[in-house]
Design a protein around this nucleic acid. Structure first.
Lengths: 142, 142
DNA sequence: ATGTATGCAAAACATTTGCACCTGG
DNA sequence: CCAGGTGCAAATGTTTTGCATACAT
């Protein structure tokens, strides 16, 4: 029962929080903007304000339940924290987001930071390109 | 004469554009926000609007004279394009930005993208950590 | 001259916040 | 019951845009 995650995080189990968690868990797109979540709530007939969505997501982030990514757009996207750290590849055309993890890159980052006298606390690596998905709106030689 | 860069880019050589280019060239902090540039202009006694700063920077970016980075803050920073691609390390405490380039990481990125069926067009890698600079406001065991 | 740039003010946009009301434990 | 959560509207901060004026070529 995922309400335990909320309790563990010291958050009251309220309807908006449960619904938002549910959407994050069930969405096939693992990366959602606050507005996308808001729209899904509205579509489900829930009367939850956008401000609440932002507040809840911010609390989730602080509690480590969710992480917030700033992909090149202006809107942040939120992703359920499922444990394994990873970085992202984004398709410039269709916006699809894929995840990857590369041990070599992780190690090089540590090395580089040390060489520059930094102790790394976090990092953000996003690759932007064109995917080869069938449904990608990118057409050959437009 | 750096006005040639402007002409080459198909941009009229105007006072705001020259001044902004000058600030980007001469600033010791190679990474500046639009507002920082705006303030420097005001300090130099120039009557240039913030909107113009944004417009000019956007044009410079399109012309490849400048690149725009979205570091974790809310403001974008702009950096004169000096040729060599590089990524960034940012100090969480003092905001200092350092640059690095790592061939191994670059290669791994290509490989990873290919494995996922993407052709990379661009990427953003930012490391966040604590620097060991004397003047860094981070105090030991605060 | 004439098309492009600029300054200003207002708009746009994502996100946050103040406040009165509601709700979970 | 009561601290904390929520909805709404208004504020915020950054970046963009409309429009009349000014400027470079």
């Amino acid at each position: 029962m995922e309400t335990s995650n909320l309790k563990k995080a010291g958050l009251k189990v309220t309807l908006p929080r449960m619904k938002i968690l549910e959407i994050l868990e069930q969405s096939e797109t693992r990366h959602l903007t606050a507005e996308a979540i808001y729209r899904e709530l509205l579509d489900s007939g829930e009367e939850i304000g956008l401000a609440t969505v932002y507040r809840v997501l911010t609390q989730f982030e602080a509690a480590g339940l969710v992480c917030r990514l700033h992909l090149e757009g202006n809107q942040a996207v939120f992703e359920l924290e499922r444990g394994g750290h990873h970085d992202h590849i984004v398709c410039n055309q269709c916006g699809r987001v894929e995840e990857f993890y590369d041990e070599t890159i992780e190690q090089r980052q540590q090395r580089i930071a040390a060489d520059h006298g930094f102790s790394i606390r976090d990092h953000a690596l996003v690759l932007y390109g064109d995917c080869s998905d069938e449904s990608c709106p990118r057409r050959p030689a437009s």
